[in-house]
Design a protein around this nucleic acid. Structure first.
Lengths: 201, 201
DNA sequence: GGGAAATGCTAGCGGCGCTAGACTGAGGTG
DNA sequence: CACCTCAGTCTAGCGCCGCTAGCATTTCCC
């Protein structure tokens, strides 16, 4: 076999795999994860069910994981895109914090099903584990950095970042589940910024 | 038919209904919600599947809701049991805040499946809606009160309580999903208390 | 051209939520 | 007492689920 045909085949496989992930994500965002079934997924890519398992031996849960990984990548990019970490930019201080919080909440709101996938599976701790998605670490580090860039940085930035992550995640989750008062989103962001821009006391 | 036999019948029905909810909860806490099926539930109470539907016409989702309502009751009681709201007691200030946060996180950790049920279904906003579970309001009001009892109360206690709720919920969720560093629980509680005991700025 | 390997399909297993329809036994009626 | 009614319960089964065994076909290498 020629090497070109081998790479051609590899690319076709990669493309089909991407189509599966994209189909799963689209279906989930449009009709919720309970509508994402192997039969519908096979239909969407024009193959039969067993083909899915040649790409994802772990079945549905592995496909959900793949969507989650894409989500972590996108979220990390959205958070990093706010210019956090560079003290000379607008990425420092309260403005940087507001930017990163807004980016996070915005992403969660625009892609609720993807966000749900990201936090539904046992992937591992954000640090503490080596096999944790790289982009999850990147996103977490962005939080640590923005906290360090505040006027009075916290004594324990790692713990502070854990709690900030929890706060933003909680607000995103409760908000998308209609558990918080609608129309109050901006005030919640300002409240978050106020709480975490200040020092530890 | 005598009225005593009627009330007897009603009580038997109520008892069986309670057994269904208890069985669902026990099964969920022990093996996760995916293990809670109508067949297993019917087995657990010694009846066939259709009996479940005479008690809960909405099927499984209505049963999950019933478990969630019990959970809201218990959580509200756990939070109120900290003596929050009475300024002369230990329920005020940073100590009261710490107590209520600890109660909340403790409940979520002891009953993860019940807690999951409480935040998985679209039940409605904590205020904003009349048909919201009463105990959910009670729990939320406890947060508002404890924030009001701080040295420098927030200007907008409702929004502050929303964010605090989100923060505690987020920490509970991420923690139980092994998303936060294990062994760091106490430091997270202290960090939460520090952030929300102080004033808005 | 022929054998081997890769590729994809059909068919089906056990289990799911849920429901239609039959059975059974207790209570009221002549 | 015989009869009828009806509430309560069960059996059986529908359409769907995730997943897999085994066969047909195509593709590739010699």
């Amino acid at each position: 076999m020629t090497s070109s045909s081998a790479s051609h085949k590899a690319r076709r496989l990669a493309e089909r795999e991407a189509r599966i992930v994209a189909a799963a994500r689209a279906l989930a965002e449009e009709h919720g994860w309970e509508a994402v079934t192997t039969r519908r997924l096979a239909d969407a890519i024009g193959y039969s069910q067993p083909v899915l398992y040649s790409h994802f031996p772990g079945g549905m849960s592995e496909i959900v994981t793949a969507v989650a990984l894409v989500g972590f990548d996108e979220l990390a990019r959205a958070m990093s895109g706010t210019g956090v970490g560079d003290p000379s930019e607008s990425g420092a201080g309260a403005d940087g914090l507001r930017a990163i919080v807004t980016a996070y909440l915005g992403y969660a709101e625009r892609h609720p099903a993807t966000y749900e996938a990201m936090f539904r599976l046992p992937i591992g701790a954000p640090f503490a584990s080596e096999q944790t998605p790289r982009s999850m670490r990147v996103a977490f580090d962005a939080l640590v950095e923005v906290l360090r860039s505040q006027e009075r940085p916290p004594e324990d930035p790692a713990t502070a970042a854990e709690v900030l992550w929890g706060a933003v995640h909680g607000v995103a989750t409760l908000g998308s589940a209609a558990r918080l008062s609608p129309g109050n989103e901006d005030r919640r962001v300002e409240e978050l910024v106020r709480r975490y821009a200040g020092g530890s006391e």
